[in-house]
Computed example of a mutant assay.
Amino acid sequence: MSRIAKYPIEIPEGVQVKIEQEQIIVTGKLGNLTQFLVDDVKVDLIDNKISFSLVNSSDHSKAMIGTLRALISNMVVGVSKGFERKLLLIGVGFRASIQSNVIKLQLGFSHDVLYSLPEGISAQIPVPTEIIIKGIDKQAVGQVAAKIRSYRPPEPYKGKGVRYVDEKVVLKEAKKK
Score class of each variant (00 low, 15 high):
K29P: 07
L114F: 15
K49S: 10
P128V: 04
S61Y: 11
V102D: 14
N74I: 04
M64R: 13
T27L: 06
V127Y: 07
I136S: 02
E22G: 08
V79S: 07
H111M: 03
S100Y: 03
V127L: 11
E119F: 12
K104M: 14
I19K: 02
L68Q: 15
L54I: 12
S51Y: 05
F94T: 01
L33E: 07
I121A: 03
I90S: 09
I131E: 06
S97K: 15
K49D: 03
S122F: 13
L33C: 00
K104L: 12
A123W: 13
I19T: 01
S53D: 08
R95A: 07
A123N: 04
H111T: 01
M64I: 14
T34R: 10
F52L: 06
A140C: 02
P12C: 15
I9N: 01
V76W: 08
K62N: 14
Y115S: 10
L107H: 07
D137M: 08
G78I: 10
G108S: 10
E119S: 12
D59C: 07
R95Y: 09
V141K: 01
I11M: 04
S73Q: 11
V38K: 08
S57T: 12
R85G: 00
S80D: 12
I136P: 09
E130F: 02
T34M: 08
V102H: 07
K134C: 10
L105N: 02
Q21Y: 01
E13Q: 09
K42A: 11
L33H: 01
T27G: 00
M75K: 01
S100E: 14
H60W: 15
F94G: 05
N56Q: 09
G91P: 01
R69N: 15
L89D: 02
R95V: 00
G66R: 12
D137K: 03
I19A: 01
I65P: 12
